[in-house]
């Protein structure tokens, strides 16, 4: 039987299929309110029209809501995961109403020993493209998986 470490290492380079996401006005409103940032630039059509973008934009962390499919053969435990880092890069802001095509890829997996045993670091990058395939943003997430969680993983 292969261990969780092997499964995680072998997942490097694997990616999901593209999924179409529409940035819905109601979803942006709910999200902006949930982070206490109900700016007219996100929510008010008129304010969006009068802005330099000519329309409403989405908050910088809104891509957490996007469906980017699932990576084949990558099974993560439901417990023992710690969100370590989150990194966004934008080529431009995202517009309310537009379609974003998202997919993700396992960029890396490595282990380090620390005070709490061997910790695994899984780096997953989500990509967002427009209909023509031009890259709009990336969202990199580093998830820390502790030893106990890896032992309990279904592999």
């Amino acid at each position: 039987m292969k261990g969780a470490e092997t499964m995680l290492k072998e997942s490097i380079g694997k990616r999901s299929e593209k999924v179409k996401n529409t940035i819905e006005r109601g979803a942006v409103r709910k999200f902006a309110e949930a982070i206490g940032d109900p700016s007219p630039l996100f929510l008010d059509e008129q304010a969006g029209k009068e802005s330099k973008y000519g329309r409403n934009i989405a908050p910088a962390t809104f891509p957490v809501t996007f469906d980017a499919g699932s990576i084949p053969d990558l099974k993560l435990p439901s417990q023992g995961l710690i969100h370590g880092e989150q990194i966004y890069h934008y080529n431009r802001p995202l517009f309310v109403g537009e379609d974003i095509y998202c997919w993700m890829e396992v960029k890396d997996y490595y282990e380090k020993s620390g005070n709490f045993g061997d910790m695994g670091f899984l780096v997953i990058t989500k990509y967002g493209e427009d209909a023509e395939g031009a890259l709009l943003f990336t969202e990199e997430r580093i998830v820390i998986i502790n030893e106990a969680a890896r032992k309990g993983m279904p592999v």
């Binding site: 982070i35 940032d37 802005s51 910088a60 969100h83 880092e85 989150q86 966004y88 934008y90 802001p93």
Partner: peptide, 25 residues
């Protein structure tokens, strides 16, 4: 918390946009 933190920049989005936003928890 990361979503909340970005709102410090919201009043300035008429000047530009958040190009990179990286956080360590």
């Amino acid at each position: 918390t990361m979503g909340n933190l970005a709102k410090l920049f919201t009043p300035y989005l008429s000047e530009g946009f958040i190009q990179d936003y990286s956080i360590r928890f």
